[in-house]
Each structure stands twice: as C-alpha cells, then as structure tokens.
C-alpha cells in the first residue's frame, strides 16, 4: 500500500496535509494524538473516503477507479474506530450479515468463514448472544472478527485495542501477529506499548502531517541521551512526571544529579509531538 501526498480537507480545516505512507507485509503502526488525522488517513486508505489531493495505490490498483476500488475492497478488511452494530443481532447474525456485504455469497462458504473468524478471535462462547448484551471489549472483538472475514490481504484497524483489558490486548496481539505473517496490517493506536509489541514500522502523525517514519527502536532513539531519572522534579525539564517508584522521569536537558536512562518508544513519541515539543518550539 502506497499513499503519496494525501490531502484531505473538511471545509476550511486541512486534516491531512501531504501525508506519505508506505506499508508492506507486516504491521505498520500509526501513532498520534487525538485530532492528528489518523482516522481520516485510515478511512482514505480503506477507500471509504476520497482524498482531495494525492495518490493512493493498493496492490497496484487505484481506488479512484470504480472497478479497481471494488477489487481493492475484495482484498481489504477494515475495522472502523467506532464500529456500529445492529444491536438486536447476535454475533453470528452480524458476522453473517457482513459476510453478505463482502459478497461471500455461498451459504456454506459464508458459514465456514464466519466460524473461522469466530474461533480466531475466541468468540465461540458468545456467538449466539445479542451484541447489545456484550461488554465493550467483546464488541471490539466482534469488530475485529468482521474485518478478518474473507482473509483480507490488507487489514486496516482503527484503534483496535481501545477498551480492551490487558489479557484481551495480548490475545489481539497474537491474532494480528498471526495475520501479519503473510498480510499487510496498518493499525492506529494511542498505546505506544502496542507499537513496541507488534509493529515492524511506525508512522507518527501530528496535526495532519507525518512527523516520523521508521522502526519503533528508531522512534525511541529520538530521545537518546535526553531521558533521566531523578528523586525530585526539575523545572527546567521539558516534560516530567512522577513514576510509581516515587522517582521522577524527566525529558530534556540533563538536570543536576539525575541518572541517564535508556529511552522508550513513549519517550521518543512524547518528545516528538507532546507538550514539550510545543513549548520548546525547536526541532527534535
């Protein structure tokens, strides 16, 4: 999947400002704060929205052409940020309905495929339960399951781990890692530990622009030599917070008496797009 110079505007607001993104086999994470444009970018890649400028190609096909767009959708799975359901449907009925939308028209084919994804995301115990009676985490799993119908070669997941407990997130990572062995997965998240755990590459979006593209390790390395632990907060630090151990983690110039530590992905991300970057008004 290739996106080049993608621009999307809503009235007078430019939500995506000449964004480039390339994603091949494996998992590409899209990281960024609220309002960065992640959802808009994913909706554009998923062919739900048409970009105002720029070029998108998936499998060498152009979503601007109706026939090619259909072919892309045949190989695509998409989990929206806020997936909607017919509340009176059971999990089984909903997945069967989406399978119909994906034109898995043979009844036996549909039944096998629905059963496959139910087993894959471990929804067997609630398959006949109405969706309105499921917890938020379970509904997220139903949303993931519908995206996996048809064995898509390009899987687009918008905030797939929002609302999941740690065990569910671990299960999600297992499923996505399994799928990404042979497919392309693009997922957006606020959680830097999801990026660290499963992503081969990460793109950081901020205010509609791509600020970083590289590996998670490279993102963390942006903060190399700038992360410290101290017993007390330091006013000169660009960003600091108290940790559970009682010590303070500081980002920025070396405070007196502080101990230099290895940076995490979160440190690199915060330095890149957090409040510190705005305050400093200088490139990272």
């Amino acid at each position: 999947m290739v996106a080049e110079g993608v621009v999307k505007r809503y009235r007078s607001t430019t939500v995506l400002d000449h964004v480039d993104l390339r994603a091949g086999q494996g998992i590409t994470g899209l990281l960024g704060p609220n309002g960065a444009g992640k959802t808009t970018l994913l909706r554009t890649i998923a062919t739900v929205l048409r970009p105002d400028e720029g070029r998108i190609r998936a499998f060498g096909l152009d979503p601007g052409d109706a026939a090619q767009r259909r072919e892309i959708r045949r190989r695509l799975g998409y989990q929206p940020q806020e997936p909607g359901f017919f509340q009176s449907f059971t999990v089984l009925a909903f997945l069967d309905y989406v399978a119909i939308l994906k034109e898995l028209s043979g009844r036996e084919e549909r039944r096998r495929e629905v059963r496959r994804v139910i087993d894959l995301v471990d929804l067997g115990a609630v398959a006949n339960r109405k969706i309105r009676k499921l917890s938020g985490g379970m509904r997220r799993r139903v949303a993931l399951a519908q995206a996996l119908l048809g064995g898509p070669q390009l899987l687009i997941l918008d905030e797939p781990t929002a609302g999941l407990d740690p065990e569910q997130r671990l299960r999600f990572r297992e499923v996505v890692s399994q799928v990404a062995a042979e497919q392309t997965v693009i997922l957006s998240t606020h959680q830097t530990d999801d990026v660290a755990a499963v992503c081969d590459r990460v793109v950081v979006l901020h205010e509609g622009r791509a600020r970083f593209e590289g590996t998670p390790v490279e993102l963390g390395d942006l903060a190399a030599g700038r992360v410290w632990l101290a017993d007390r907060p330091d006013a000169s630090a660009r960003l600091s917070w108290r940790m559970g151990t009682g010590r303070h983690r500081l980002l920025g110039d070396p405070p007196a008496g502080a101990e230099l530590v290895s940076p995490t992905i979160e440190d690199g991300y915060l330095l890149l797009v957090g409040h510190a970057a705005n305050l400093a008004e200088e490139p990272v």
């Binding site: 959708r73 939308l101 034109e103």
Partner: peptide, 18 residues
C-alpha cells in the same frame, strides 16, 4: 442512520444496490 455504514462502504457489495 446505518450503524454499519463504514463497514458496508468498505465492503464489495455495491453501495447503489444497498
């Protein structure tokens, strides 16, 4: 009006038919 609108739009069944 359709809670599954985005899912349906990204699927292959033609929107006009729906």
């Amino acid at each position: 009006v359709d809670p599954t609108f985005e899912i349906a739009t990204a699927a292959t069944l033609p929107g006009a038919r729906i």
